[in-house]
Design a binder for these strands. Structure first.
Length: 202
DNA sequence: AGCACGATTAACT
DNA sequence: GTTAATCGTGCTC
């Protein structure tokens, strides 16, 4: 049931490798004694100050400080006046980069997720970066948390992964005003949900 | 101090 | 396909 937690060395690698490698790993949220989890099925890489789609383009600020810190931490920020988004910090400490977790296939804690996604069909509970934070009860309070600590309230466990022939790669979404070449750079990774292994099936 | 905008979502026409 | 919701952040004055 519980697999080993990913080590910090998993995150202390090139961000594209981490973004690809996180597909098929399990995001786990410990909330009020309950265990909520899901398979990671979509990610995006944001890499350094030269990546004009990355928040670190503005340099180190109070908001982006976590990205400059040690790898394996959660970078959670607020946007559009209403949504929280979850990232995993990558690369060596001092280099600002992270992987945005865009979607998970929920597996455990379905009752708790349902309560936070009232009126929404199960297949739509966690199929967007803002949605999964809402379903898992994540906000700024978890910013900076160590994702490699299985005794904490948010961490990532090893999973079966996803074979190359099931990985789709394309441009990142939601960065329409970002100039080229960043707008079209294929740093988005996704895979199909796993039939029979969760509830996000259409 | 003021302003434009956003790594989105849901509810419209 | 279009648009409102809603506020922290970073930039300009």
């Amino acid at each position: 049931m519980c697999s080993p937690c990913l080590l910090q060395s998993f995150f202390a690698r090139p961000t594209l490798e981490v973004a690809r490698g996180l597909l098929g790993m399990r995001l786990v949220r410990s909330l009020n004694g309950a265990r909520l989890s899901g398979w990671i099925v979509e990610t995006e890489a944001y890499i350094g100050e030269t990546d004009l789609a990355c928040h670190a383009r503005a340099g180190k600020t109070p908001r982006t400080a976590v990205m400059y810190g040690p790898p394996g931490r959660a970078y959670i920020y607020f946007t559009y006046g209403m949504h929280w988004l979850l990232n995993a910090v990558t690369e060596a400490e001092g280099f600002p980069a992270a992987v945005l977790l865009r979607a998970i296939q929920s597996v455990e804690g379905l009752e708790e997720m349902s309560a936070r996604r009232a009126g929404v069909p199960p297949a739509r509970w966690t199929d967007g970066p803002g949605k999964l934070c809402r379903a898992l009860g994540l906000d700024g309070q978890q910013n900076g948390i160590n994702l490699c600590d299985p005794s904490g309230e948010l961490y990532i466990e090893a999973g079966p992964g996803v074979p190359d022939n099931e990985v789709l790669i394309g441009p990142r979404v939601g960065i329409q005003s970002t100039p080229e070449p960043w707008r079209s750079t294929p740093w988005r990774f996704r895979t199909q949900i796993r039939p029979g292994c969760g509830i996000n099936e259409d």
